[in-house]
């Protein structure tokens, strides 16, 4: 009988998955580990759960294994909340030893921004995850960013990179480029809605709130109103350099 039980490590946490469809494994390539560590989370889905979450894929999507992959993302996002961790919708970049999150609703230009950064900073920037990085709030108040198997259609990202979060940029399309710090209270809603979760319990809702409080306490947030052009990425990079005093580096 073919194997359908696998373990991966997400945000330094061993998670065991049991798939309904054998070919779901194809989406986890590079993330599966052979480990004797006891899984902290065990995830398996039912066919009813898949049906309830069919909205996660396009109506013309034919692959049931892709639906399972997407539904596993939601279940994983929910499960991580009980471990001071979360899946978050955005692009995660490694630059100057810190992780940077660029977030916005789908179709607002995250991937375009990522490509500009890559073109401008070349080898100085590494993509941690192109779509759904994992966050961990540590006891010392720092927030760490990891990759996850959910990397978007371009599959940007590397399984083994993690970095301390340096800041968050919220993108907004505009007819001009402007980047300003965002007060924590103004960042709550735009960040809350980008958590990859549909909390099932009161505990998960409260945990997600606590994670966002920790993130807002730990790092600054900026709003980048932008045209989606290279100048907007230059503005973002220079703003961060000035904020952190890296202009002379």
């Amino acid at each position: 009988m073919a194997r359908n039980y696998y373990q991966l490590v997400c945000a330094d946490l061993p998670i065991a998955y049991q798939f309904i469809y054998q070919d779901t494994i194809q989406y986890f390539k590079g993330y599966i580990v052979e480990s004797d560590d006891i899984a902290q989370i065990n995830i398996s889905l039912t066919n009813a759960y898949l049906e309830d979450n069919r909205w996660l894929v396009n109506a013309d999507e034919k692959s049931e294994s892709f639906l399972e992959f997407q539904a596993l993302m939601l279940k994983t996002g929910n499960s991580l909340l009980s471990h001071n961790r979360a899946l978050f919708h955005g692009v995660a970049l490694l630059w100057n030893n810190y992780a940077w999150l660029i977030t916005a609703p789908s179709g607002t230009g995250k991937t375009t921004q990522l490509r500009h950064w890559k073109r401008l900073l070349k080898k100085d920037v590494t993509i941690i995850n192109g779509d759904k990085p994992a966050l961990e709030c540590k006891d010392d108040g720092t927030v760490w960013v990891y990759s996850s198997p959910w990397r978007g259609k371009e599959k940007y990202g590397h399984p083994n990179i993690k970095a301390k979060l340096g800041g968050i940029i919220i993108l907004e399309q505009a007819k001009y480029n402007d980047m300003k710090p965002l007060a924590a209270e103004d960042a709550v809603i735009p960040l809350y809605v980008e958590f990859v979760s549909m909390p099932e319990t009161t505990e998960q809702i409260e945990n997600q709130a606590e994670i966002l409080r920790s993130v807002l306490k730990s790092v600054p947030v900026w709003k980048l109103k932008n045209l989606g052009d290279e100048d907007s990425a230059i503005l973002a990079i220079n703003t961060l350099k000035t904020y952190y005093g890296w202009n002379n580096g």
Partner: peptide, 18 residues
């Protein structure tokens, strides 16, 4: 049932569980 009031940095949200 299943509605939780949360407060984050002075922002109040009613969040629904499953």
């Amino acid at each position: 049932k299943g509605i939780v009031l949360i407060e984050i940095n002075g922002v109040f949200l009613l969040v629904a569980d499953q």
